[in-house]
């Protein structure tokens, strides 16, 4: 029992590694901000392309969405991070990580937006168009505000996934939270920094996960 606490809940080691982990947390925050913001925008554009009646827009968009839903984010990350330099393309680690996560995640945001837009009945479109509003005006003023409201829990849930996704950046030595914790672990031969990292993730994400559960009460029948 004492051994268990020493290995996993060693307060001394936790407090020593805290400064390192907090700077890791800052990097995590930066990653999250970049990917979430770009993902929300990119996902919206992708979903509009997915729904477009124009084939030349819709088919590549659907292909893009399917491919990036099938590829594991870690594979994508390694591919971009270590593969591109082989082809002579120089890219900063931060940019590689953001690009990989963006490609992966915008596909998921796109699917959420798509479901939201489809959930708005035809009547809303017809009423708005019949008053002389254009397709774009209808989308922006009538459909999207309602659509986003309808799928807010799913958007939130996907955002939680992004935060968890950033832990993968540790694999390519980007010094976010997990990298810092793992580094501290290898120096101290003690798993407590990892437990500390887990606790930090829990503190941030548990409330959000609970919120999402409360809102996602019912499944569509």
């Amino acid at each position: 029992m004492q051994n268990l606490i020493d290995q996993f809940f060693n307060i001394a080691i936790m407090s020593k590694s805290l400064p390192l982990m907090l700077s890791g947390l800052w990097m995590t925050a930066k990653l999250c901000a970049a990917v979430i913001l770009l993902g929300l925008i990119g996902g919206l554009l992708l979903s509009l392309a997915n729904l477009s009646p124009r084939g030349w827009l819709r088919v590549p968009a659907i292909l893009f969405t399917d491919i990036f839903r099938a590829l594991p984010p870690l594979v994508l990350l390694i591919f971009i991070y270590s593969g591109l330099p082989f082809a002579g393309i120089e890219i900063s680690p931060f940019a590689a990580v953001v690009l990989a996560f963006l490609l992966n995640n915008s596909a998921y945001y796109a699917e959420v937006y798509r479901a939201g837009i489809l959930s708005i009945g035809k009547g809303q479109w017809e009423a708005a168009r019949s008053t002389g509003l254009s397709q774009t005006q209808t989308l922006t003023n009538v459909v999207l505000p309602q659509a986003v409201r309808n799928v807010l829990p799913d958007l939130l849930s996907n955002t939680v996934e992004v935060v968890k996704l950033t832990s993968l950046a540790s694999v390519v030595s980007l010094s976010e939270l997990l990298y810092a914790a793992n580094m501290a672990r290898s120096i101290t031969y003690n798993a407590s920094p990892l437990v500390l990292a887990a606790l930090i993730y829990l503190v941030i994400l548990w409330p959000v996960v609970r919120l999402v559960s409360r809102f996602q009460r019912r499944l569509a029948a």
Binding site: G123, E126, A128, S130, G132, L133, S134, N141, V142, P145
Partner: peptide, 28 residues
């Protein structure tokens, strides 16, 4: 050409007056 539908289809996320204002602002 004004149209009135069986299902009314007011925009639920806007107040009554905003419903009436929307097309005037954006289309006119």
């Amino acid at each position: 050409v004004g149209m009135v539908f069986q299902g009314f289809h007011l925009y639920p996320h806007m107040s009554v007056v905003k419903n009436v204002m929307l097309a005037q602002r954006k289309a006119l």
